[in-house]
């Protein structure tokens, strides 16, 4: 068990170092140098020189990389060039929108997908299975931002139940805050729930062909008990894997959906930063996104440990 844990921790560490290196090198590779790139063609030599100093571009590349890393570890992500505020403050301000959105839609997806997938598996080949599978097939095919637009058209423009976009802010109360996240979360959850329910169904059906299921039948367990006591937990292992992989889709989806609803989240921040050529913000936000994907997969690895005793040697 310890060796598994150490191996995972080691992988986590190496992945973080390597991914930060990749991001750093890519940002370094901009045409010209970062300072002149950020200022555009109209910049004078003096302003470029000033920015170079501010960014520390005079230093050696390796030093800069380590300074960046050490800075991030101590919570200092640098100063945004366009906003003139520390990047960590910007990120934090946006994270309180993006993080609840992601968690909300993930929860929603799980709560839809598990019952749907399990029902489809239990009634395999029946009408209800067919309907759930057909619905999920369509759910996968719908682009989430288009679904978001249709939700806006129906619930905001026609029914006027929700506002078409924007965020009230948590200061105006949790209810209002959650209300402005409802449509975004639903549109994000739809494709996730569709994929997940298919994975859950097929994973349970696969598990049901195992020899130990036959053993359970011979013991006199009913089909329902077999699914809940034997198939479900065993089917969870591949589902966990997919859940971890899906997280990166969820993040990407959140960035796009924030644009549909004009939510002031990380997605909006990064697109503004791209148009304003604020490389420091881009670099930090991308690092944060990649970090969260790696972290989630690490957590999934730890969950395996709870589910599967074979790893606990």
């Amino acid at each position: 068990m310890l060796s598994y844990l150490w191996a995972r921790l080691f992988t986590l560490f190496v992945s973080l170092v390597l991914s930060s290196l990749i991001i750093f090198i890519l940002i370094e590779a901009v045409p010209g140098d970062p300072a002149s790139f950020m200022l555009g063609i109209n910049a004078t030599d003096e302003t470029i020189e000033a920015l170079r100093k501010e960014l520390g571009l005079e230093e050696k590349i390796l030093n800069r990389y380590f300074n960046w890393l050490i800075g991030m570890l101590s919570g200092d992500f640098g100063v945004s060039y366009t906003y003139r505020v520390p990047v960590q403050d910007l990120i934090l301000e946006r994270l309180i929108v993006s993080l609840p959105l992601t968690i909300l839609s993930l929860t929603l997806a799980i709560f839809i997908a598990f019952p749907a997938g399990m029902i489809a598996a239990q009634f395999q080949g029946k009408k209800i299975d067919f309907s759930i599978m057909a619905a999920s097939q369509v759910g996968i095919a719908i682009p989430n931002f288009w679904f978001a637009m249709i939700l806006v058209l129906i619930f905001a423009i026609h029914l006027r139940w929700f506002s078409a976009g924007g965020f009230y802010g948590w200061d105006s109360g949790i209810v209002l805050g959650l209300k402005s996240l409802t449509l975004p979360a639903i549109s994000l959850a739809l494709p996730q729930a569709s994929i997940l329910s298919r994975v859950i169904r097929s994973s349970i059906l696969n598990t049901l062909t195992e020899d130990y299921i036959r053993t359970a039948r011979a013991k006199g367990l009913s089909q329902r008990k077999i699914i809940s006591k034997h198939a479900f937990k065993n089917a969870l292992i591949p589902v966990l894997t997919i859940l971890g992989l899906q997280f990166s889709f969820l993040l990407a989806g959140a960035i796009i959906i924030e644009n549909v609803f004009f939510l002031p989240g990380l997605g909006r921040l990064i697109f503004q930063a791209i148009t304003q050529r604020d490389l420091i913000v881009v670099e930090s936000v991308v690092m944060l996104l990649v970090f969260s994907v790696i972290l989630v997969n690490f957590i999934v690895d730890l969950l395996y440990l709870i589910v599967d005793p074979r790893l606990r040697k």
């Binding site: 195992e210 130990y212 036959r214 053993t215 034997h230 937990k233 065993n234 589910v307």
Partner: peptide, 12 residues
């Protein structure tokens, strides 16, 4: 049954 390696649930 015949298969002792697979006839038991590995997670219990």
């Amino acid at each position: 049954f015949q298969e002792p390696m697979t006839a038991l649930n590995p997670l219990q």
